[in-house]
Every structure is written in structure tokens, then in C-alpha cells.
């Protein structure tokens, strides 16, 4: 464990431990509704962290991460429904295929010098291909949707991921913690420093002798595969998949709002962002409900508003200034937040 804690200030450790304990015991006190909100928050924290590997660490903007969510979701769901394959086994082909698709997009882009917004457009294009493709892919229901059997489970079936929300909550919490630790280690690894160099200045990175093609590929493939794991969760938690929803660009945007608002390239940014956005959006909904006001789309307006405020007043995201306020010194955690 020591290598994980090296150089992290004590105050940060205490806060982190309290925060984690809070998450660990939350389901004991939370009602069903709050639990679903927490699951949503963790889902966005997880997916945001995965996206952050590509954009925050390596500087490659993806606006099509719904593609990997969708692939992970459809592949494991189809294997489970059609062949009875446990999602714990199905996730291997799901992650492999998503990683391979990420590699294909990365290869096309980086081999032919597509970067910046053009790379982002390429990622959107592939997500759109998938959306339209799955609309016509009748084996998994096409546009009519694909459904997982839902029954009243008296007992959690962990092996087949069928069970209570509480079970899903803990699985997702474990995933979020795992990807957080992974990112923490990655940032301190050689790859992490190479990504930083590529993000800050690809020309300088190349002049220093970094194989920028290879390291950009690593970031894309890793991000894609890990995001697909989020998709596996998505499928088994929501039990229904519609191409128009799963692969839609608004899904991709939702994923990236958390890290942008929390702080791109920081470790805590995606988590803080997910809590802020989903937490506030749900509170807003609750208030509207109490007031008896029914305004469809108010959540999207709220997201837009948050983005505007952050871009104008906190261009680095909420986390970096918050970290300063909390007295978590920059020396020890500077590049990762």
C-alpha cells in the first residue's frame, strides 16, 4: 500500500478516508431514490475518469465515448441473453473489442496526423456509425431496443449481475475506486509523464524522442476498454438498451461534463464534477417537483449553465481551487490533483 500513499499529504488522506467511509456506509442510510442518485454519480465519476485518461492525461479530445459504453453494454448483454454467458466472462470480449475499436480510431487518426478538433470529429463519427448500425442490427433488437430479463430477485445473483441496487452500488464503487487508483499510478508512471509531455506540446515531446504515436495509442485503447466496463455496468443496471440513447452524442457529452467541471487532467476532477453535476441536477429536480413546476429539459439548461459558470470563472475546473482551499498542498499532488 505504501507506494500508493507516497507523497500524499496527511490532511488529504484523512479527507479521502472520510469521503470513502461515507460512500461505503451511504447505502445503510440512503433510501432507494438516493441510492439511484448515488449510482448515477458514481457511474459518471467512473466514465469521466476513463475519458480523462485520453483527454486529461494524453490531450486527445474524444466526443464519442458513448461508443465504448454502448459496445461494452451490447456485447455483454447479448452474450448473457443469447448464450447465458456471465457478464464477468462476457466483459473480456467486450473490453477487447472496445479496445480494438479504440485502436482502429486511434490508428486512423494518429497515423495520418488527424489531431485536435478533427480527431474529436472522427470520434463523433464512429459513435454515430455505431448508433445507426445498431439501429439496424436486428439480432440485438435494432431500434426497438434490447432488453435483459428482469425478475423479482429475492437474492443477489452476483455471478450474473442480477440483484438489488445495493449490490450494483458496491460493484460500481469498487470500479470507481479501482480506476482511481489505476489513474493515480498511471500518472506517476513513465507513460503518465510521456502523456503529459504529449498533452503540453506534441512537438517538444517528439523532439525529446518520445514515440508519440505509440503512447497516444496506449491512452486511447486503455480509455476505450475501461469505458466499456462502464458500459457493462450500464447494461445490467438499466436492463434496457436503445441505440438512440446509448450511442447518442448527448451521452458522450454527459460523460465529459463531469471532468470538465471538476478539472480536466486531475484525479479528483471527474469525481467532484460528477457529484456537483448530478447532485445539483437531482436537487433541482426535487425542488421543481415540490414547487409543482414541470419544465422539460431543465436539467440540460442547468448543465449548460454550470458549464458556462465554470468556463468563465474557474477555467481549470472546480477541483484545483477547491484543493487549495482545503489546504492540500500542490507540491505533493500537483500534476494529478
Amino acid at each position: 500500500m505504501k507506494f500508493l500513499l507516497d507523497g500524499v499529504p496527511r490532511s488529504a488522506l484523512v479527507l479521502l478516508a472520510l469521503f470513502f467511509a461515507g460512500l461505503l456506509f451511504a447505502p445503510m442510510v440512503a433510501n432507494d431514490y438516493v441510492l439511484v442518485v448515488l449510482v448515477t454519480i458514481l457511474y459518471f465519476a467512473y466514465a469521466g475518469q476513463c475519458w480523462n485518461i485520453m483527454m486529461g492525461f494524453a490531450g486527445q479530445l474524444s466526443l464519442g465515448h458513448a461508443l465504448y459504453i454502448g459496445l461494452g453494454a451490447y456485447i455483454t448483454a447479448a452474450l448473457y441473453v443469447k448464450f447465458g454467458v456471465s457478464p464477468w466472462i462476457g466483459l473480456f470480449p467486450a473490453l477487447a473489442i472496445s479496445g480494438a475499436v479504440g485502436a482502429l480510431i486511434g490508428f486512423l487518426a494518429f497515423r495520418f496526423g488527424v489531431s485536435g478538433v478533427y480527431f474529436a470529429i472522427l470520434t463523433i463519427a464512429f459513435a454515430e456509425f455505431a448508433r445507426i448500425g445498431f439501429d439496424h442490427f436486428t439480432w440485438v433488437g435494432g431500434a426497438g431496443g434490447f432488453f435483459l430479463p428482469v425478475a423479482n430477485y429475492t437474492q443477489n445473483d452476483f455471478f450474473n449481475l442480477r440483484g438489488s441496487q445495493r449490490m450494483f452500488y458496491y460493484i460500481l464503487l469498487a470500479m470507481t475506486v479501482a480506476v482511481f487508483i489505476l489513474c493515480h499510478l498511471l500518472l506517476r508512471s513513465r507513460a503518465g509523464y510521456y502523456w503529459l509531455a504529449i498533452r503540453e506540446s506534441p512537438e517538444a515531446a517528439e523532439a525529446l524522442g518520445i514515440n508519440i504515436f505509440r503512447y497516444k495509442m496506449y491512452a486511447v485503447v486503455l480509455s476505450a476498454a475501461l469505458t466499456a466496463l462502464g458500459g457493462v455496468f450500464f447494461a445490467f443496471f438499466y436492463n434496457n438498451l436503445f441505440p438512440e440513447q446509448v450511442f447518442h452524442i448527448s451521452r458522450s457529452i454527459e460523460i465529459i461534463l463531469g471532468p470538465i467541471i471538476g478539472g480536466i487532467g486531475t484525479l479528483f476532477g471527474p469525481i467532484v464534477g460528477a457529484f456537483l453535476l448530478t447532485g445539483l441536477a437531482e436537487s433541482l429536480r426535487e425542488v421543481m417537483l415540490r414547487l409543482g413546476v414541470d419544465l422539460p429539459g431543465v436539467k440540460q439548461v442547468f448543465y449548460g449553465f454550470c458549464l458556462l459558470v465554470v468556463v468563465m470563472f474557474l477555467p481549470d475546473g472546480v477541483w484545483p481551487p477547491l484543493k487549495k482551499k482545503l489546504g492540500l498542498d500542490r507540491d505533493t499532488e500537483r500534476k494529478e490533483g
Binding site: R190, L196, A197, E200, E203, A204, I210
Partner: peptide, 17 residues
């Protein structure tokens, strides 16, 4: 082409990778 958000020392370290 330096790395503006890194310190001088870190920039130099990057040169030795």
C-alpha cells in the same frame, strides 16, 4: 517548445527520458 506548466527542473528531467 518547452512545457510551460512544468517547472524548469521538471522540464530538464523530461529531457532525460
Amino acid at each position: 517548445q518547452i512545457f510551460p506548466t512544468l517547472t524548469v527542473q521538471e522540464n530538464l528531467e523530461m529531457g532525460a527520458l
